[in-house]
Simulated assay, not measured.
Amino acid sequence: MTDPLTGALLAGAVTLVGYLSEHVLTCLVPAFFIAGAIGAFVKKDAILKYFSPDTKKTVSYGIASVSGTVLAVCSCTILPMFAGIYKKGSGIGPAVTFLYAGPAINVLAIIYTAKVLGFDLGVARAVAAVTLSIVIGLVMAAVFRDHDARVRAAAPARTAQADDDGRPWWATLAFFASLVGILIVGASQLPWTIKFPVVYALTLVVAVLVIYTFERDEVTDWAYETWDLTKKIFPILIAGTFALGMLAYFIPPETFAPYFGDNSIGATMLAALVGAVLYMPTLLEVPIIGTTFGYSADLMAGGPALALLLAGPSVSLPSLLVISRIMGAKKTVVYALLVIVLSGLAGFVYGNIVG
């Protein structure tokens, strides 16, 4: 008879091997290269300078809501960046939109969600994260108008223009399109006799573009950004997935079915509340929902899963404590309530439409 510790270790190993074999080569490796390329070739500083309260709302909120695809950060990494733009005179709406959307729209997490938990949930997460980030920012700006008034009084509006890197637009477009093509084809269910030639051809396109249209320093930056993301995220994902497998041995997913097994408003709100309290490093929310809460085994409904995906990466008890020191307790409480309520409602709507 297997003792509990041995059984837990075996369960952790089985879970880890399953995730590695199914998702790493065809999903995470191309995703890390895409995220690294975005981090290296998209001008972050120019983006962050568009957050003035006098900037046109369609520009400031639009940029803030998709910033996570550029920055590829988690909730712990977004906090110092949020503090910087908030203290330098950002409007509170775009700053909060940036704070929420940064981790929620993380390109790695969206891709991983779609691959592991299903395409529908991945798309719903991306669309809802962008939408909720803008709504949360607009509400915060409406509630705390005095903040923007003080910012306007202290400094004039600022604008910024992104630097021109001199590269033909079609080269950058073809570069990113080829990387995304490698990801889509590699993660598809096509036979390897079709996958391999297509992935090989797209890889050659990337190589040619890198050699003839990119500077050596840019390629070095791409490699550095990719490696930096990998070394920060991948070890946590490995250790976390193994630990979740062990946890599932002692607390099976069936435990949570009575709480998250349907798409009721109570289930989705509870999931959003749990997400707002727990700290989940980037990408780890996917195996937590799939394994610990049992979404992959149909023990967790889609509504609570989406609510947890929307609330969990963006806020946590530790991050809320830090945010309160940046913009004050009152603004932090309003922000947290908006995240929980809107994430729960989004999960409820998704669960009852799809379900």
Rank of each mutant, 00 (worst) to 15 (best):
A207E: 00
F196S: 08
L10K: 14
R158Y: 00
V29C: 03
G84S: 15
T15W: 01
R325C: 04
A311V: 04
L9C: 12
D165L: 14
V286E: 05
E22M: 12
I289F: 01
T241W: 05
L179V: 03
D262C: 10
D45P: 00
L317H: 02
A329H: 06
A248H: 05
K49H: 12
I85R: 05
L299Q: 13
A239W: 01
V107T: 11
A101T: 03
P156K: 02
Y350G: 07
R152N: 08
W169E: 13
D163M: 09
G181C: 07
Q189I: 02
L342P: 06
T332R: 04
T26V: 10
S65K: 04
K88P: 03
N106C: 04
R325L: 09
Q161R: 12
G137M: 06
V205E: 00
L183T: 05
S324Y: 00
V143N: 00
V73Y: 07
Y350A: 09
T332H: 08
F82H: 10
M269Y: 02
S343E: 07
G166T: 05
L299D: 02
A95D: 08
K44N: 09
Y212K: 10
L278I: 15
P304A: 02
G137F: 06
T230F: 15
L229S: 03
L16W: 08
S188E: 05
F260T: 13
V315T: 14
F260Y: 13
C76D: 14
I78Y: 02
P258R: 11
F196W: 07
A109S: 14
A149E: 14
L273T: 13
D3M: 03
A129W: 03
Q161C: 03
K49W: 03
P252S: 12
G84D: 14
D228R: 08
A329N: 08
V139L: 13
L345F: 11
I63A: 06
V339Y: 08
L48G: 04
